[in-house]
Design a protein around this nucleic acid. Structure first.
Lengths: 237, 237
DNA sequence: CAGTGGTCTAGACCACCTT
DNA sequence: AGGTGGTCTAGACCACTGC
């Protein structure tokens, strides 16, 4: 299966991952059974199982006893809340409501080129939106989407609440991880009206790089967040 | 091994976890081999292996081919940086230097009682310290330690840079996870001098609950952080 | 009922470490 | 050489699903 040494289960894992990346299997699809995969790849069922279970821990697959193994979908609640870290003081999960402010096609600036690994002059779509939690305006978000990754995304009229679902269904992009960088800043005057806060008020700035299944950074967003009523909560394990 | 149904490997996992909690095996100890454990518990070696590997993914054990299986220690770099999320803009890891400002025994206030699950009137040690990154003062930290968990910790003269190591070596407390709650605030005037920032400057406030191997919250800390030069960085998976 | 994943076992061989 | 964990296989039985 490969000349350089790799454990068999790792080689199987790589084959499966590649098929997921290529879209050979798409989100929601039913995979062949363990025995069918084992036969096809020339290994034992236990070896296939080990690779499959690894992909389950990475949220790429979903296995259901008696039914089969499916490609994970982002439409599941559990998957959404992995990346949405806002919580009430009580710790309860929250569902955001989203309003689009503007959307425009432009050339990526140097920072955006660097963060997203884009060539000079690359085009992006910049989406500006406001998100509310329990009817309180909390986040002002600037989302940068390379048009090379999301062709014509600037032409879409009705954006869903969850962009990741759109990425997956329309562009075959499955976000598997995100890198958040947080700092505190004084709210810039020009953003104040959107957040219902006075200028210079302290806000939490969350810069996020979203990573596709193939390891590429495909989206870059910056959010200015009021933390008057809600907090960014994360569990370190 | 138990009357209610549990998979064998889960029962083995529970036995091993309990022994770790009780201190039957201590950090750094060498565990018996897979076959020895399998004999003792009356299951096959593969079943023990499954439980052991689960504990490795939870950072409770460390396995080395040819040597054996060891109880994980917090003194390892990898373990420390799991919980220390401060990074340079470049993304490089940073080692903090720490200076103790004060330490005092007092009664837990209501908030502290609630967060740590303490009875009314419980005594705590409050440790105040300043931490620097690359010689820049960055964090002002208030650490709350219940004396019921850490007896006489207020009497220790020389605190190490890493409290978690102290907890493990001296009190048998192994921190396995932490829950961070982040918000932005204006720097209170009384803290300004410690952080070399003007009062009202935006700071990142990080409230942390540290969780012991038995699931109890055993430490509660609040940090006021300058994000002028460094950021709190987290990878969501 | 057949097909799926979940668990458990037993045994083989390998790679690594220590003596 | 002997002991450890790492990999791989083959086969058994169970629990759940859907026809």
């Amino acid at each position: 299966m490969s000349t350089s040494f790799q454990p068999l289960y790792k080689q199987v894992y790589d084959v499966l991952t590649q098929r997921l990346q290529e879209g050979y299997w798409k989100p929601g699809d039913l995979l062949p059974s363990e025995f069918a995969l084992a036969d096809e790849l020339g290994v034992s069922q236990g070896t296939v199982r080990k690779a499959l279970n690894q992909l389950v821990t990475e949220y790429l697959l979903d296995r259901q006893q008696g039914k089969g193994t499916f490609v994970a979908e982002h439409t599941q609640e559990s998957s959404l809340f992995r990346f949405f870290r806002w919580r009430e003081p009580g710790g309860e999960k929250l569902i955001p409501e989203t309003t689009v402010i503007s959307q425009s096609r432009k050339s990526a600036n140097v920072d955006q080129q660097q963060k997203l690994g884009l060539p000079a002059g690359a085009e992006i779509n910049e989406l500006v939106r406001v998100r509310s939690l329990l009817d309180q305006i909390t986040l002002l978000e600037f989302v940068v989407q390379p048009l090379s990754v999301f062709p014509d995304i600037d032409l879409i009229k009705e954006l869903p609440n969850s962009l990741y679902t759109l990425y997956q269904e329309r562009y075959g992009i499955s976000i598997i991880s995100a890198r958040d960088e947080l700092r505190a800043e004084a709210l810039p005057k020009k953003f104040a009206k959107h957040l219902n806060l006075p200028p210079q008020h302290p806000v939490l700035v969350v810069e996020r790089l979203s990573i596709n299944i193939d390891g590429r950074a495909v989206e870059y967003s910056t959010a200015y967040c009021s933390t008057e009523s809600f907090s960014y909560v994360v569990n370190l394990k």
